[in-house]
């Protein structure tokens, strides 16, 4: 099956490693994508605060172009895009007044919106369309022993839990287990990363991200796997600031449970996109998967594991 593909702004900028890893992984699995013609900004969260109706028009243009492209479904990997596109569908369904305005605006571009194109997330597609068993068939270098904190973030399970459990999502767990990883118990799977506050109000914003990193470390994770470009950015790119603010805080020593160690040095835990891990297991190179774009490199043991498996 061929899908329309909506990359969104982040996947062309700060989150390009997500696109760089998603496309080759789907290619290996035989999923064809066609990038949406002349797509525009989804009308994301920040936009909604200014004018909700215009945000809806922005989102609808993308939905209408997807309908015109003729593929049955639209793939939106960024969580914010995924939510905004879905939310717009709900909103248009609930409010005939807004729908009338949107349709009128769309006519300016010879477009119409019928609401018949589902917006899908790559996790949903991989688990429910491709299937875990199919994915296992393509694993060349299982990432045995790699301990993962699976971090889903907010917007793919809230407010709509369409393809996964709202309290304890497991689609990413199952995918990563299929390629050999081990999941640590991570109670913050869906806790907020602070969103755009990390840039605007660093005090509260960074605290949100710091809590996520610290908990992954105390739970013994080697790597944090993410599904959203903003989550990945927040957890990956502000470590210097976090170390300055909270690096002196102590956590139980992972090697000696009676001792405590400062959290600072441990904060350099790699934060990757789940598609990068799948790509590694499929035998794709680190470069192809954009792994060099992370601020904290994947730790030696993990890579060594991979290489020894290859040998």
């Amino acid at each position: 099956m061929k899908y329309s593909y909506f990359p969104g702004c982040s996947l062309k900028g700060t989150g390009r490693a997500y696109e760089e890893s998603l496309l080759p992984v789907l290619k290996v699995l035989g999923v064809e994508l066609e990038e949406l013609d002349d797509w525009n900004c989804c009308g994301a969260t920040a936009y909604m605060a200014v004018d909700e109706v215009k945000a809806c028009v922005m989102a609808s243009r993308n939905l209408a172009i997807a309908e015109k492209a003729g593929h049955k479904e639209l793939l939106a990997p960024c969580s914010a895009c995924y939510l905004v596109l879905n939310k717009t569908k709900h909103y248009l369904h609930e409010s005939p007044v807004v729908e009338a305005v949107v349709q009128k605006a769309l006519r300016q571009a010879n477009l119409t919106y019928s609401g018949n194109t589902p917006v899908r997330h790559p996790l949903d597609l991989l688990v429910n369309n491709v299937g875990i068993e199919e994915i296992k068939k393509h694993v060349k270098h299982p990432l045995k022993g790699l301990k993962i904190a699976p971090y889903y973030g907010c917007q793919i399970v809230r407010p709509y839990a369409t393809f996964d459990d709202q309290y304890n999502p497991t689609t990413m767990d199952r995918l990563l287990e299929a390629i050999g990883c081990t999941m640590v118990t991570y109670p913050l799977k869906t806790r907020c990363c602070g969103g755009s506050l990390t840039g605007t109000l660093p005090e509260p914003g960074l605290l949100c991200s710091y809590i996520l990193l610290k908990e992954a470390i105390t739970r013994g994770a080697d790597v944090i796997a993410t599904v959203c470009p903003l989550c990945q950015f927040n957890l990956d790119c502000y470590r210097d600031k976090m170390k300055g603010k909270w690096g002196h805080e102590t956590i139980p020593d992972p090697r000696n449970k009676d001792a405590r160690v400062p959290v600072g040095p441990h904060l350099d835990i790699p934060v990757v996109f789940f598609t990068q891990l799948i790509g590694l297991a499929f035998g794709l190179s680190e470069k192809e998967l954009g792994l060099q774009r992370g601020f904290a490199p994947m730790r030696k043991p993990a890579c060594a594991q991979r290489q020894s498996a290859a040998a």
Binding site: C9, G13, T14, A105, Q108, A109, R293
Partner: peptide, 27 residues
Amino acid sequence: LLRRGRFPLKLEGIKRKSELERMMAVV
């Protein structure tokens, strides 16, 4: 970010900007 290729030096934009403008004018 620049060093890791995550800091684009060019502003992104769509091709059919006037189309979007017309749509927004309706609203």
